[in-house]
Write a protein that binds this DNA or RNA. Structure first.
Lengths: 350, 350
DNA sequence: ATGAAAGCGCTAACAT
DNA sequence: ATGTTAGCGCTTTCAT
């Protein structure tokens, strides 16, 4: 069923059929209705390759995610709600969202090159930006509309949105300091992902602001998952003086961390304060409930989509053209995991 | 940069360039090398729309997932490893995998119709099959290669792979009966998703095999997530006689269930036996560790991909042509959550 | 308001 | 071994 078949069936030219289907003005209303009715009845849907070839667009936006070992498990629960938000915007413009799954074995930059060169998508959202991310240079050079979820050190003029890792670190440190803690550890990703650096910076600045000396031993690097949390706890327990508080940059780490501490007879929220990262269905059900930070991933997705479209000529005027460089705020959700009065004895130890 | 530009640059015809790039035999080796070198140097990659239009194929396989409220969070952690496995197979054939994200607001069948009619993909993997799933009829009628992850009641001849929900239910019941339980509840999804029915059937059969009467009050329907687990525990506590054991068809439910039981002063693994569904990074870190079932999601993905390709003419001979109707076994992983001797007094109550 | 036809980039059939 | 050309389905320009 091609447009040719449909035209023949209606005994009109394919040009008119095309115009009717695409809502062009110069088409008789009666003709349009006949065309639309027949298309529906016969189940005609235009072939995307034909359109793409002719128009140079695909009406598809790609959201590139990497299935690294680290995020294979947890990444999904983060991205799904984001996709939902992105999609709710794209729908209005008849754009389709596809998740581009970069194989673990393939270089993200190579994969992206393939996708872009094949003209697979009209625009891109890329995530998990590295501190130095060649993908950004590539997309800028190729002039492909894109937005990144995550900052990068790459110079250049491109839109991005990132979670407020620095703010989270500072808020968490401040909160713990007010509860009497001075011996505060952090668990951050072992990889080159940019958020680790940003989080660390925020942590250092907050310490400095509270007059606490930075102690590199209190920075534990591990995978951003349950296993990494377990290892983080192990590392902290091995120190000659276990810190009185831990801040994690990933909520799943909390699960493993709790476990390891329980095994050592140490109760989060009683013997050690824990602040996690993102509030999730899991964090809500931990015992004790995790103090963490709330974010609407759906809203994040909406903003990502709108910001991307605002850079695309085809959608000019629909959205504010201001280039987006946005640090997405996160809201503290107090839990039980850091709610206890630190004993003065411990407090002095640090 | 089109094939025409490349040909002009090399001062040969586009036909020869095309043949060289596509590894056809009738091309001079020296010419081929010149072409490949120039393509690489100039960054030429064939336009997918052009190829698709000509060849009628897209070299892309779609994996359709739905972001329902129920699975928005948890679904991701299930699918990511499956994708990884699927991709590892597709890579060998230069096929790309895209996740097709059906908007919550859109009927899955409508969405699928769009994707298929536009010739977006050469083949499909569809998941979360409903008991009666119109998508299957549609794909059969359109003769699109596909495989489902999940059974359906739909008649017809199509390949599917499904987890062994019935086997899990039977194994779990048998195990609990041997530990002395006779008052065994189950928590299953509230939706029409087919696995709920299958799980329930297995449960009933196992009870019958053990000479235990089926009690409908012990079947609790809830969302397959943490919240649903919490509600399931609440429902069980409200019964005039709390069961001595619970089997859950979703591992995330265990997290909420634990929480609710703890709140009521009931300790899983001591006061009540719990068996979860899939071993996950989270279940491994629960306290007490959850007795559950292990599955390699990556291997599942590999089998899905291979089975799909075996139905596609273009890959004839690469994989066994036997139509796949496979129940994927799951292996019991004993945890602490059901390891206690039931007191005879309780045992008699049921 | 409609029809005719060019042409998007590519591959494959046919010609040499 | 290479060149030439038709045509995949579609949109759009030009003509009427």
């Amino acid at each position: 069923m091609s447009i040719r078949d449909l035209a023949r069936h209606l005994d009109i030219s394919i040009g008119t059929v095309s115009r009717a289907l695409n809502g062009k003005a110069d088409v008789n209303e009666e003709t349009r209705e006949r065309v639309l009715e027949a298309a529906k009845r016969l189940g005609y849907v235009p072939n995307q390759s034909g359109r793409s070839l002719r128009q140079g667009t695909t009406n598809t936006i790609g959201f590139m995610i990497e299935s690294t070992i680290e995020t294979a498990d947890a990444g999904g629960s983060f991205f799904m709600p984001v996709f939902e938000g992105v999609q709710s915007v794209f729908r209005r413009h008849h754009l389709d969202l596809v998740a581009l799954l970069c194989d673990m074995d393939e270089e993200p930059a190579d994969y992206l090159n393939r996708v872009v060169s094949r003209r697979f998508v009209d625009g891109l959202i890329i995530s998990a930006t590295a501190r130095h991310d060649p993908r950004i240079d590539f997309l800028l050079e190729r002039k492909i509309p894109f937005i990144t979820l995550g900052r990068s050190e790459a110079p250049g003029n491109y839109p991005w949105i990132d979670l407020d890792f620095e703010g989270v670190a500072m808020t968490a440190v401040k909160r713990l300091v007010e509860l009497g803690h001075r011996h505060i550890a952090i668990g951050i990703p072992a990889s080159d992902i940019n958020l680790g650096y940003i989080f660390l910076d925020g942590y250092k600045r907050a310490l400095a602001g509270s007059g606490i000396a930075f102690n590199p031993d209190l920075v534990v690097r591990a995978h951003a998952n349950e296993e990494g949390g377990y290892q983080t706890a192990t590392a902290l327990l091995a120190q000659k003086q276990t810190p009185t508080a831990v801040i994690l940059v990933n909520e799943n780490m909390a699960i493993g961390l709790y476990r390891r501490f329980y095994e050592a007879g140490i109760h989060p929220g009683r013997d050690i304060a824990v602040i996690g990262f993102r509030e999730s269905t899991q964090s809500r059900f931990l015992s004790p409930t995790l103090t963490c930070f709330r974010i609407s991933l759906r809203d994040l997705g909406i903003k990502l989509a709108e910001s991307l479209l605002s850079t695309m000529p085809a959608f000019e005027g629909h959205y504010s053209q201001d280039k987006v460089e946005l640090i997405w705020p996160m809201e503290l959700v107090p839990g039980e995991s850091d709610q206890f009065q630190l004993q003065p004895s411990k407090q002095q130890q640090s």
